[in-house]
Simulated scan of single mutants.
Amino acid sequence: MSTEKTTPADGHSYELTRTLAAPAAQVWRAWTTPDQYAQWAYAAPGSVEMDVRPGGVWKATVVTPDGGRFPLTGSYLEVDENRLLVVGMDVPGKPEPAAMTVELEEREGPHTQIVLRQTCDTAEERDSAEQGSTMLLDSLGAFVTGEAKG
């Protein structure tokens, strides 16, 4: 798995690029199937619900390493199977969801290049979101290559 990081000039956006040793369809299923998502995305078993279509909703309860639980909710803003997922994440106190874009591109091997982008309101929010996204991509990469804990 290769890793690349790019932070655009505005300072409140980030972009993470990875190449995973798995076909795009496998990466897509890991990201859009509740039981698979729960295995790599730090979600409590049974807490993940997904209606993967534009306007469909999702929810998951994230479990932190210290045992804290944080319920997350949102909707799917754009869906193009095996290629593009724009996920809206509800943010308390904000009228619009925070959008995270996940692009998949099939490469030879089979490999998949995944590009994750998000724009945040502040540098602090960006840093926190980027750290969380980096952890997710690390875990996703291990999961799709069979290196994840069982």
Rank of each mutant, 00 (worst) to 15 (best):
K59V: 04
V87P: 00
R18C: 13
Q131C: 15
G11S: 12
I114N: 01
P95W: 02
S47T: 08
S133G: 10
L85P: 00
A123L: 08
E125Y: 02
A41N: 14
P65T: 01
L72G: 02
L136S: 15
V91C: 05
Y37Q: 04
Y42R: 08
P54H: 13
T134D: 10
F143T: 02
S47F: 02
Y42L: 10
E147H: 11
V144R: 01
T33K: 12
P45Y: 09
E96Y: 06
Q26S: 07
R69S: 09
P71W: 13
H111Q: 13
M135N: 12
Y76V: 01
T6M: 07
G150R: 06
Q131N: 11
R83K: 12
E49D: 05
G141D: 03
I114K: 00
P65S: 01
E103Q: 12
G146H: 01
P23T: 14
P95E: 11
V52D: 03
A98Q: 10
M89L: 14
Q26R: 09
V79L: 03
G88N: 05
A9W: 05
F143C: 09
E49P: 00
N82T: 13
V52G: 05
A98L: 12
G109T: 10
V52R: 03
S47K: 04
P97Y: 00
L16S: 08
A44T: 13
L140T: 02
T19S: 09
L77T: 03
T3N: 07
G93R: 11
D90P: 14
T19N: 09
D35F: 07
L72K: 03
D66W: 14
E147S: 11
E125C: 01
D90F: 01
M1S: 13
E130I: 03
L72T: 10
A41Y: 15
T64G: 01
V57P: 00
Y42E: 07
T145M: 08
L136K: 08
L116K: 09
V86W: 13
E15H: 09
H12Q: 14
G56D: 06
E96L: 10
V102R: 00
L104N: 02
T61L: 08
Y14K: 04
S47G: 01
T19G: 08
G67N: 12
E103W: 03
D35T: 13
A24K: 04
P54Q: 11
H111C: 07
D138M: 15
R53G: 00
W28T: 07
H12A: 04
A98H: 15
V63G: 04
T3G: 08
N82M: 06
T3Q: 06
W58Y: 15
E49Y: 09
L16R: 06
D51H: 06
V91N: 07
P71L: 13
G11R: 15
Y76W: 06
R53Y: 04
Q39E: 13
V79W: 02
D138T: 15
Q131Y: 07
G68N: 10
P110S: 14
S2F: 11
L20N: 01
D138V: 12
L84T: 10
V63S: 04
Y37N: 04
A24M: 09
K59W: 06
L136Q: 13
Y42G: 06
R53K: 12
L85C: 06
G150W: 04
R18Y: 12
L104M: 07
V27L: 05
A38F: 07
Q36K: 12
M100S: 15
P65M: 01
A142G: 15
Y76S: 05
A21N: 14
H12F: 08
T64M: 01
